[in-house]
Computed example of a mutant assay.
Amino acid sequence: MTIKIIADSACDLSKDFFNQEHVALIPLKVLFGETEYEDMVTIDSSTVYNAMREGQVVKTSQASPNMMKELFTEIAEKGQTAIYIAFSSELSGTYQTAVLMRQEVMEDHPNLDLTIIDSKCASLGLGLVVKHAAELAENGSSKEDILAQIAYDISHMEHVFTVDNLDYLARGGRVSKASAFVGGLLNIKPLLHMEDGKLIPLEKIRGRKKVLRRMFEVMKERNGFTAKNQRVGISHGDDEVTAIALQEMIQESSDNSNFTITTIGSAVGAHAGPGTIALFFLNDDKA
């Protein structure tokens, strides 16, 4: 039996990916106006980005505990083996809720075979981990082998990203409002990365072209060009043109052709905003 891979919508993979029989989606919640939506199910990212451009405040919340419980119960009743690779616990309560729901389901189904992993990753960084795990599951790998690869990918996954407008990060408490105002005046673009699942400012760079070049340089500095069959992810906040430009910049200096480009989904995009560009890769020479 193929092992079931579960991911939440913060992985920013496409709907087509989740149409696979052995892959399941747990959507996070998106709220604006008077309505609550399910990311990727009842709302798409373009709607969210347009609302943000119009000045609407978009909020998010973790996935539904009841939906998790229903999915975990179904897995138990079918006797399946499953692995849930969750959005970083430093950015969402979804992982903790999943652990609690697993405990509840196990009260009635003690044989539930479900492993829940705190990925410490976000957006397509999480997506690349999930995608690799799904490929292994599809090819019949054992649970132990898949878990070992997930652990490796998580420990070596780099997240390097920039936002086009600091105001969105300010609304989410990531930067001060004063910093956002000054950054907008000076055309300063923040470069950020992740450490142990947390968003950490890395540098401040003036100008869009310079920050893209710097992302490329950081990838070089962190051994992103040395990995064999390197899996490179680029996600964007409704700015595919810039995402493709970054891909071409990388391809000019490497033979790599294993790229995944996706739009940042509603749950992550509500905090990062339109115009965000994010780069993901492994920092070691064993892919």
Rank of each mutant, 00 (worst) to 15 (best):
G183F: 11
V211G: 04
L25F: 06
Q56R: 08
D113M: 11
I117V: 11
S254H: 10
A180I: 08
H156N: 14
E107C: 09
V129R: 07
N258S: 07
T81W: 01
K59V: 05
M67H: 13
I234W: 01
F280Q: 07
S89W: 06
E221R: 10
T35C: 05
F18Y: 15
Q62F: 02
Y49R: 02
A278V: 04
Q103E: 15
I5G: 01
D108V: 15
Y49C: 00
R222V: 11
N187I: 06
D16W: 02
V58H: 01
M67A: 15
T94P: 04
L192S: 08
M68V: 13
R53Y: 08
L126E: 15
D238R: 02
G79A: 07
Q20T: 10
V268P: 00
L279W: 02
E158F: 09
A137E: 04
M101I: 05
R208F: 09
A134L: 08
E77Q: 14
R174F: 05
E34P: 06
L192I: 15
G125N: 05
R53C: 13
L282M: 10
N283C: 07
Y84K: 00
I261N: 14
I85P: 00
T2P: 15
D44H: 02
E144L: 11
A148I: 09
I43D: 01
E135I: 10
I234M: 03
G275Y: 10
G184F: 08
E104M: 14
N223M: 08
L147M: 14
L199K: 06
R214K: 13
S14D: 05
L169Q: 10
M215A: 02
